[in-house]
Design a protein around this nucleic acid. Structure first.
Lengths: 181, 181
DNA sequence: TATCAATTTCTGTTTTTACCGAAGAAACTG
DNA sequence: CAGTTTCTTCGGTAAAAACAGAAATTGATA
């Protein structure tokens, strides 16, 4: 019995699909992801095609994309020659992988470009000073964020969870703070 | 002399425009933003039209959108009847506003939906247990992140900067850590 | 290594989104 | 209050993205 017969499951899937489009991911990709996330066993491509009513080729592309993010993986199912696909169920893991991949694809190249522009403009007499300064600022800003992220991402997961639970209280532990608990 | 005559300024603007599309913002909007960010004085809509070669109407829409994010504001220029527009130059401020607005537009409604679905399924005998559990998990996860964000966003900016500079070292200050500096 | 199922790539079509120009509304000037 | 100027809204069109189906490739099995 198809998973999506249940109206709430379907509602989730449709909403997830729309969310995707708002963040620059195509609807098929995010729908496939939603379906796999809700499924309790790995699904072969065919079944995804059936349940979502997408073209086979489309599903293939979506799966490849999701594997690129590292949030879906291929698994072998005993006695079946077809590939089956399984979504990452640990949501924290899922999030960190998506963020890591988007940084790699979009943020890192942007920082690289800004670096190049800033360096070239530093030598360039004809460059308007405001423009030079603002591009440099943007470069510094994004680099700072990037470096922060690289440091935080390697912290052990339990540490991250602790930090998350602390929320705003984290400020109390800062060196200069008079407001210890 | 038009700002975009300089090739590096233009490169920035074009890249920024593409970045936008990748994150679900239309190209015109992000280009207008880039132009205002690089400009050292407020620009009237006409001039944006001229420099970017967009339709007047399009620029109007883009400006409205950017004002919706709170990263561009209208200013009055002495002796000119037209509205002029100015981009937020503090990049930290810019980022927090964008994040706040996207949360408001996309994350909050998602959490609301997940909440609704989770609640309904809790009563619903026909709901497959896996589905119920996974939707509930997703709801909890996003709520946790949302609450964390709400706490952190209200911290004073200097505190945030300190936290950012600490990077991974923040872990040293956690209660259980043996690894004090 | 030949066969066949499964998967991916390619190409043309459909759907969606972005965008322009025209018309309307609002704000200001003399 | 008539005439301008500026700004926004709307409907149609152009551009881009998503998608389906056919063709090609891969890879497992015997």
């Amino acid at each position: 019995m198809p998973l999506l017969d249940h109206p709430d499951a379907k509602a989730f899937l449709l909403h997830w699909g729309e969310m995707g489009t708002q963040w620059g991911v195509n609807r098929s990709v995010s729908q496939v992801h939603a379906l796999l996330y809700l499924s309790h066993h790995p699904l072969p491509a065919d079944e995804i095609v059936e349940q979502l009513g997408l073209a086979r080729s489309n599903v293939s592309t979506a799966l490849k994309e999701l594997q690129g993010y590292g949030i879906v993986r291929r698994v072998h199912v005993e006695g079946d020659r077809r590939d089956h696909f399984l979504a990452e169920l640990d949501l924290w893991e899922m999030l960190t992988r998506i963020v890591a991949e988007r940084k790699r694809r979009e943020i890192d190249p942007t920082i690289a470009l800004l670096n190049e522009l800033a360096q070239r403009m530093a030598q360039d007499e004809s460059a308007p000073p405001h423009v030079r300064e603002r591009i440099t600022r943007m470069h510094e800003f994004m680099s700072t964020l990037g470096n922060w992220y690289e440091q935080v991402r390697v912290l052990p997961k339990p540490t991250l969870v602790t930090l998350m639970k602390l929320g705003g209280k984290i400020a109390r532990f800062l060196p200069g703070s008079k407001d210890k608990p």
